[in-house]
């Protein structure tokens, strides 16, 4: 019971962090937003572990998906993509979650390619 209550408190806190991060992002305060997204990602990872410990894979996957989305929005694309690849190997992922994850990973890879090519171009012109 106490564990459930703690998890609910963490879920509320994480939701508030994501709203605040989005609020900062739309104001162009990207670095501040990244810090909030990273903190939210860590809480999502903890929540996922707690659900896994209870044998609730589908619930855990919801938080793992959110964690990798938060890492992506925090700018840590490598961590997000790596997490996504690992998650794809899990049997508890539902077919809808798998489809969503594949689509999201594709978006992350496109963003990473775009960033990496721009970065290479900048290095070449310096």
């Amino acid at each position: 019971m106490a564990e459930q209550s703690k998890m609910q408190t963490n879920e509320t806190y994480k939701s508030n962090l994501i709203i605040e991060a989005n609020f900062l992002k739309i104001q162009g305060l990207y670095q501040d937003a990244a810090g909030k997204f990273a903190e939210a990602a860590q809480i999502e990872e903890q929540l996922a572990e707690q659900w896994l410990a209870q044998g609730a894979g589908t619930e855990a996957a919801i938080h793992q998906l959110s964690a990798l989305s938060c890492w992506g929005q925090a700018g840590d694309l490598y961590r997000a993509m790596n997490m996504g690849e690992q998650l794809l190997t899990q049997s508890y992922l539902s077919s809808i979650q798998r489809t969503d994850l594949l689509a999201y990973l594709q978006q992350l890879q496109q963003r990473y390619t775009q960033w990496a090519s721009q970065w290479s171009l900048q290095l070449a012109t310096n």
Binding site: E11, T12, S15, I18, I62, L65, S66, Q97, D100, Y104
Partner: peptide, 9 residues
């Protein structure tokens, strides 16, 4: 209103 949702929900 209890929680924000995750990707694909």
């Amino acid at each position: 209103i209890a929680q924000v949702t995750q990707i694909g929900e």
